[in-house]
Computed example of a mutant assay.
Amino acid sequence: FLRISQLTSILTRPMNVTDGTEFVLLGLTHHPELQVLLFIFFLLVYVIIIVGNAFIFTMIMIDPLLHTPMYFFLKVLSFLDICYSSVTLPQMLVNFLSEDKRISHTGCATQMFFLLFLGASECFLLAAMAYDRYIAICKPLRYRIIMNKTVCISFTILCWFIGNVVSLLQTLWVFSLPFCGSNQINYLFCDIPPLIKLSCIDTTLYEIHVLKMTSSEGRHRAFSTCSSHIMVVTLYYGSGSLIYLRPNSINVQDSNKVLALMYTTITPMLNPIIYSLRNKEVNGAIKRMMLKRKLFFSKR
């Protein structure tokens, strides 16, 4: 990864905000009576994310029939989803039950860095998965040659590297802005849109820049996986784009919070379900795993 000495120097200098060293995350609602219900709901969501993605990851690791390029990327996606949701959900759960919703300057920047790093890495990984499906459909006879192990690992490392660069540059830019006035972040976690609202300078040029930046049996099986991938891409890119590519002039804060929950919690929770229920190979692996477990306990 890149050296972050510049980021460290920015994080350790004082800010021109009311508190000086801390932000306050206002969260999802101001009604205390809903906090416990929200805590229970999102705790359940977090457990489903961890268990579901860990199950997919483990199943792909131990089943030799799933040692293919497509499932290699799916394994990496499951790992990213676990890490991605863990960046925001634990802090959200604590805030639901605590009156102290403060987060330090360094903690906010760290959360933003890993949120952007994992989010960008997942975006590029989904693109790599789409390329994998393109090769499987258009060049099925050369699929195993083109998408060999070295290529898959190289794609994964490249996704992580680009994600790291994008995250580092974005975090450095946001925390180099002069913050003034209130230190309250009307959001669920530290992210770019709510933080630049606290800035003293006009960020219109940044918004315009972002808007300009933003594409036989074997063949039948390859096509069948595309529908699952399209569903995941639509959920992830769709909700994220509505937040990051929408100018501040038409931002609706409450709707942004809902969209943020979509790509940070709902999508990681649905990924294992989407890829397993609509996939014969995964269903077959589940049956083989259950059969092995049944045989193991019957021998005992």
Rank of each mutant, 00 (worst) to 15 (best):
G119D: 07
E122R: 00
E122K: 02
A128E: 06
A130F: 00
D132V: 03
I135Y: 04
A136I: 11
A136H: 11
I137K: 02
C138N: 09
K139W: 14
L141G: 08
R142E: 15
Y143W: 15
R144T: 05
M147Y: 12
N148T: 05
K149A: 07
T150H: 07
V151R: 06
C152I: 06
I153R: 02
S154T: 12
F155L: 12
I162N: 07
I162V: 14
N164R: 03
V165F: 07
V165K: 01
S167L: 02
Q170P: 00
Q170D: 04
Q170F: 01
T171G: 07
V174R: 03
F175V: 11
F175Y: 12
F175W: 14
P178H: 10
G181H: 09
Y187K: 00
L188R: 01
F189A: 01
C190F: 00
I192V: 06
P193Q: 07
L195Y: 03
I196F: 02
L198D: 10
D202H: 05
T203Q: 14
T204G: 10
M213C: 12
M213R: 14
T214Y: 13
S215H: 09
R219I: 10
H220A: 10
R221H: 00
S224R: 08
S224N: 12
S227R: 06
H229C: 02
V233N: 00
T234V: 00
Y236A: 03
Y237D: 02
G238V: 00
G238I: 03
S239R: 00
G240M: 05
S241L: 04
I243H: 13
L245Y: 09
